[in-house]
């Protein structure tokens, strides 16, 4: 495995390795070649790099057409321009016919979009795709997990969406840990007073919150939810059953994302209190760290939600 840093380089590294093994893999770009750090990919595989210009709806349609002919297209660009502007194409022309097309959405969340401001911060993508049948939704927590998620996506037969960030995420995982297909992985297990379910680039903050709480004598488990709406949520359900209280943390809208998914599982299998941390308003420009702290995602903010 080549060295890489952050989710974008992780994508470029993974798709390069996939294409080396299978020449039917392609990168479909909406002028996102540089954004995806994929210039070396295009140089190595010029015929596998399909440029469609700044035109996400057309890009998704091109991927649909390619897919019907046996190509495995990876459409990778900004999360919101995919899931909002090209939402209909992702639904009607990819998900409905269940085509084997993969999507990687970057700049997802506050932390992904950060200084660009609201136009480039996308915290609705998971909610939107959760409403569409046939989509497998991967939520890698850092660059290392994104690399494995992209590899894993190629093994799924059908549409996959991988939520990625800006490239400045904090690494939580080492390079070797695979992307769990259980949809959940316990990263810290200090006890089950509260289980914190975290998704994506706030995982490091949830882990810090657990340390703060440990010092106070509150025993917390932190679990990474890396797949939502998966076929077999049994591992998540058993963790829910073992929890006193449940807190969810995601850099996404509070409606329709991972928190809502967990909440529904809790209601159905073992009703108890769930406190959700997610976005309720539009945000603003700012450095990722400061922005996340300001909107409630500081380790202290998360700890406070556990104490509440």
């Amino acid at each position: 495995m080549k060295d890489f840093k952050g989710t974008r380089e992780a994508f470029a590294t993974a798709i390069t390795e996939l294409t080396e093994k299978n020449p039917e893999v392609m990168f479909i770009s909406s002028d996102s070649l540089k954004a995806m750090r994929a210039v070396p990919y295009a140089e190595a595989f010029p015929a596998n790099y399909i440029e469609c210009g700044i035109a996400e709806q057309g890009t998704v349609n091109v991927a649909a057409g390619l897919s019907t002919c046996g190509i495995i297209p990876f459409v990778a660009t900004y999360a919101g321009f995919l899931t909002m502007r090209a939402c209909e194409q992702m639904r009607t022309f990819i998900a409905y016919p269940n085509l084997n097309v993969k999507f990687v959405g970057i700049n997802a969340g506050l932390i992904g979009g950060e200084r660009e401001g609201v136009t480039h911060q996308f915290y609705e993508d998971v909610s939107i795709l959760s409403a569409i049948p046939n989509f497998t939704i991967f939520l890698p927590a850092d660059g290392n997990q994104t690399y494995h998620a992209v590899k894993e996506a190629a093994a799924v037969n059908g549409p996959v969406y991988i939520r990625a960030g800006s490239g400045r995420e904090v690494d939580v995982y080492d390079k070797e840990t695979p992307f769990s297909l259980d949809g959940v992985r316990i990263l810290k297990d200090y006890g089950r007073d509260t289980v914190i379910f975290a998704s994506g680039f706030v995982l490091d903050r949830a882990l810090e919150a657990a340390e703060i709480l440990k010092k106070e004598g509150v025993s917390v488990t932190v679990a990474d939810i890396n797949i939502i709406n998966g076929k077999d949520p049994s591992k998540i359900i058993s963790l829910i059953r073992s929890a006193g209280k449940i807190v969810t943390v995601e850099d996404q809208s509070i409606n329709g994302g991972m928190g809502s998914y967990i909440q529904a599982l809790v209601c159905e299998h073992d009703p108890k209190i769930v406190r959700k941390l997610g976005l309720k308003t539009f945000a603003e420009s700012g450095p990722a760290k400061e922005l996340a702290d300001a909107y409630g995602y500081s380790p202290e903010g998360i700890a406070e939600l556990v104490r509440a």
Binding site: Q57, V62, G65, L66, Y96
Partner: peptide
């Protein structure tokens, strides 16, 4: 699949590229 207007040419372009 088709019928949501406007999409056929880009889908066709994908098939043609393939």
């Amino acid at each position: 699949t088709s019928g949501s207007l406007g999409n056929g040419i880009a889908i066709g372009a994908g098939m043609a590229i393939a």
